[in-house]
């Protein structure tokens, strides 16, 4: 089902564009979308789809795709304007409906992407707040969200439980003051297994520090691996999670 969210059901540019010659934007859309699949460079929507899938499969929150989201949002605005501009033309109803569908799918992707991130931020809010590396991965708005979410959860815990416990046991970070580290913060399990696919052949890849375990990553093959060792490959965009 996910597979056809954003990718399919597009009109074929060559066939139907004749009627749209009066509109440069629509023409652009047809050209851009029509032969996108054959093109080597993925469209922004495809990239957003990949970012969303990675985000869904990865146990920790990934870097926010600032530029990509910006571009997609601009495209959405443009598409909305186009829809309004052409909504009067009854003869183009089918094309407009396809166009509308394309817009809706893009919007869905964007929303799903942002929602997935919020979910993870909520789940590991305290951890995200503490780890600078993770904190930097959030957008400005998400940082604000994480901060306020933690505050309100902390307040709630304080009012219901922590404030009523004896002195020394009231921290949200530590089980008791005698704990040396913050031992009460949920962290994502980076050793969980993920499904991933390599885009190009990477060759023998080391799965642990000792080098006992290696896997030969071939292009387009599916692997089930632990997340931690392949994290860097994901950062460098050499593999994708599915």
């Amino acid at each position: 089902m996910e597979g056809d969210v954003a990718g399919s059901s597009r009109g074929n540019g060559a066939d139907s564009s004749a009627r749209f010659r009066n509109s440069e934007e629509l023409q652009d859309w047809m050209n851009e979308e029509g032969d996108g699949s054959a093109d080597m460079s993925a469209s922004d929507v495809d990239m957003l789809k990949r970012a969303w899938r990675n985000e869904k499969a990865a146990p920790e929150v990934l870097p926010f795709q600032t530029l990509l989201v910006e571009r997609v949002r601009e495209q959405i605005l443009l598409m909305e304007d186009n829809l309004v501009a052409f909504s009067g033309e009854i003869s183009e109803e089918l094309m407009l409906s396809l166009y509308r569908m394309d817009l809706d799918r893009t919007l869905f992707l964007l929303r799903a992407y942002l929602r997935t991130r919020l979910n993870k931020i909520e789940k590991f809010a305290l951890h995200v707040l503490k780890a600078q590396e993770l904190w930097d991965r959030l957008s400005e708005q998400e940082q604000d969200y994480a901060q306020r979410f933690t505050d309100s959860l902390h307040k709630h815990f304080q009012q219901t439980v922590l404030g009523k416990l004896p002195y020394g046991y009231q921290s949200i970070m530590k089980q008791a003051t005698s704990s040396e580290e913050d031992d009460m913060i949920p962290e994502p399990n980076l050793d969980t297994f993920v499904f991933c696919r390599s885009k190009r052949a990477i060759g023998a890849f080391q799965l642990d520090e000792k080098g006992d375990e290696t896997v030969d990553l071939m292009a387009d093959d599916l692997y089930i691996l632990r997340y931690r060792p392949i994290k860097d490959l994901l950062d460098n965009d050499r593999i994708e999670l599915v």
């Binding site: 996910e2 969210v5 809706d104 799918r105 919007l107 942002l114 929602r115 969200y145 979410f149 309100s152």
Partner: peptide, 30 residues
Amino acid sequence: YFKSYSDLIGSYMTSIDLDLVVDVTPPKDP
């Protein structure tokens, strides 16, 4: 807590100018 969570979601959605509550399932048909 519900109220503050609700405000929080609301202000996040305002800050990004996008309603995230709709579109929970992938749209098949507009």
